[in-house]
Amino acid sequence: MPDSFQWLLLLGAFLFSTGLAIVVCRRNLILMLMGLELMLNGANMNWVAFGRLYPDALQGEIFALFVIVVAVCEAAVGIALIVQVYQHYQVSVPDQVADLNEN
């Protein structure tokens, strides 16, 4: 059985892979955004796990804080764009937004 440090790294890898699968297979824009958040959280889990190896060095946690800030920006801008797309096309499924595809 892997020790707790490897367990945290495995959780990070699992969250990242699940987020990737969500972005690939779900067809709703908001769900794809949530998959992106899950991928960012998987990366954060790696920062925290390696920061735990060296408790005196806080660089990992500081970088995780900056990742959270950027995730907030991404979620705000993403939701605003999704709402605009919905108001314009009345759908939130990216496959049905196919104007550029037709001509």
């Binding site: 440090f5 890898a13 699992f14 990242f16 990737l20 690939v24 297979c25 067809r27 709703n28």
Partner: peptide, 29 residues
Amino acid sequence: APSRNRWLALASGGGLFFLLARIVVQTNY
């Protein structure tokens, strides 16, 4: 929302997790 590309998602997500988990377990820290 119905899903699409199920097999592609399974292949990419599962494959990535398999690779990462192998690296995590095999590395000496």
